[in-house]
């Protein structure tokens, strides 16, 4: 089903539920992985992905078709994730450990995270990036999202996104070098 057909289903109140089940079926995995790469924990991701789809359903009338449906959904998902991380960071403000350390420690004990030493160090390096830089890096590196699509979702310029991604990749490489991991290349 195309975006336009799905949009038509969602606009009509009599076919909305059917349209929404198609939407959830089509987008759930991608939304989940985008959230998971940001928050790392499966439990948090599971909660957030459900909240995102409820938000999408509740706000379906405000979607006017100015962008593609996928862009609109990913934008909601990413904003919701950033808000979650921001409020989580607030909770960690008066704690002895930083949110990054806490996330990394829980990742190490996470059974749904199967990684070797290099992957673990890569995650540690990614966690050192600011949230928005991390978001751009994850979308490009894990989801292989084209910069053009990212431009629509994050409402910023393609050149700015490319610069952010390369800057993030450079910082990660430097961190990996400190951890004695050489020859780690990232796609452009």
């Amino acid at each position: 089903m195309t975006d336009t057909e799905l949009f038509e289903l969602l606009k009509d109140i009599s076919t909305r539920e059917k349209g929404f089940s198609v939407l959830v079926h089509d987008f759930k995995e991608r939304v989940y992985w985008q959230i998971r790469h940001m928050v790392l924990s499966h439990e948090d991701s599971n909660d957030l992905v459900q909240e995102v789809f409820i938000k999408v359903f509740q706000n379906i009338d405000s979607f006017k078709g100015d962008s593609t449906l996928s862009t609109w959904i990913y934008r909601i998902a990413l904003n919701h994730t950033l808000n979650f991380l921001s409020s989580k960071r607030q909770r960690y403000r008066f704690k002895f450990t930083s949110i990054e350390d806490a996330m990394f420690e829980s990742l190490k004990s996470d059974t749904s995270f199967e990684a070797d030493e290099i992957e673990l160090k890569l995650q540690k390096a990614i966690l050192l990036l600011p949230d928005k830089q991390r978001l751009v890096f994850n979308l490009r590196y894990y989801d292989e999202m084209p910069f053009k699509e990212m431009e629509q979702i994050l409402e910023t310029t393609e050149s700015s996104l490319k610069a952010t991604y390369h800057f993030a990749a450079k910082k990660i490489k430097e961190q990996l070098l400190k951890d004695e991991i050489h020859n780690f290349d990232f796609p452009d």
């Binding site: 959830v24 759930k28 989940y32 992985w33 998971r36 790469h37 749904s112 199967e114 894990y142 292989e144």
Partner: peptide, 23 residues
Amino acid sequence: MAKNKSPFKVTNNYFDDLEKEIL
């Protein structure tokens, strides 16, 4: 598994259950 290179995993029927739960 998610896309290539992702070390994160979910159980086999997770996405089917997730869809039901969301609906």
